[in-house]
Simulated assay, not measured.
Amino acid sequence: MSWRPARRCVRCTIVHTVGELLRQWRHRRGLSQLDLAIAADVSARHVSLVETGRSRPSADMILRLAGQLRVPLRERNRLLLAGGYAPRYAERPLGDDALAAVRDAVARILRAHEPYPAVVFDRRWNIVLTNRAVEPFFARVDPVLLRPPVNLVRLGLDPRGLGGLVVNRADVRAMFRTRLARQLAAAPDPELTALYEELFTPGSDDGPGLPIDAEVVMPMVVRLDGRELRLFSTITTFGTPADITVEELAIESYYPADAESAAYFTG
């Protein structure tokens, strides 16, 4: 079954109890009450009492259940608030002094990846940082699309943006659709849903992509300076973050998929 974003109701404000929210996350993860109880080392009866509101869980119990349900830190704060507790996880700007070590680590990763391109983006795919290898690509982009916040998905699909450089647009479009759908299925977000609906309306595909039967990973083929560059990417995130901003950062690093593409960057 393919995921489809739910319709949004801008007039509706629904307040859920902590038990209702936990039940929603349990269903989202496809777990029974017994599955969750075993994973969290509690009784299935206790999970049932919490979900139905007949037992008020402690803050630690909320976080224990949320951890087993892989609930993002932002949503764990929401669970705590619904349970009558203060949030546990801070959300600091990336420029905050407390995140100096994170900024340094990200900068080191970006520099170390040169001469190949790399970008850092947040949970809504807004670009936060890039390395210098991205500059030749952005030089071909309509300046209007580079006004902050610059959204990587919108930029990658717009013909005035990087989409105008991509040869296999159908493949790249399908890749972005899959990644956004997977992200929304794991943790719904109204703004991300709006982005999905904006960019992936029915009938908006670019036609069949290039044959990739022999590929180990799907390359993105970009035409730049009269040459076709074949690139694939990896995603890096921070392990065991305790800050919302840090958890929601992702670094996408692009690599040449063949010797000719590598020579463009190193020659």
Results as ranks from 00 to 15, higher is better:
1 M>G: 14
22 L>E: 14
22 L>Y: 10
29 R>I: 02
32 S>T: 15
37 A>E: 08
41 D>F: 00
43 S>Y: 03
45 R>Y: 03
55 S>R: 14
57 P>W: 03
59 A>Q: 06
66 A>L: 07
67 G>I: 09
70 R>I: 00
77 N>F: 01
79 L>P: 11
85 Y>S: 05
94 L>R: 07
98 A>K: 04
103 R>C: 12
104 D>E: 14
105 A>Q: 07
107 A>W: 10
113 H>R: 12
122 D>G: 14
132 R>Y: 08
134 V>W: 11
145 L>H: 08
148 P>Y: 05
159 P>W: 07
160 R>N: 06
163 G>W: 05
164 G>V: 06
165 L>A: 06
165 L>Y: 07
173 R>C: 03
174 A>D: 15
178 T>Q: 15
183 Q>W: 00
184 L>E: 08
187 A>S: 15
194 A>Q: 03
196 Y>P: 02
201 T>G: 10
202 P>G: 06
207 G>F: 09
208 P>S: 09
210 L>K: 01
212 I>Y: 00
218 M>P: 01
219 P>I: 01
220 M>S: 11
227 R>P: 02
228 E>L: 05
228 E>F: 02
231 L>Y: 10
232 F>N: 09
232 F>M: 10
233 S>C: 13
247 E>H: 06
249 L>C: 07
250 A>F: 05
256 P>H: 04
260 E>S: 13
263 A>F: 04
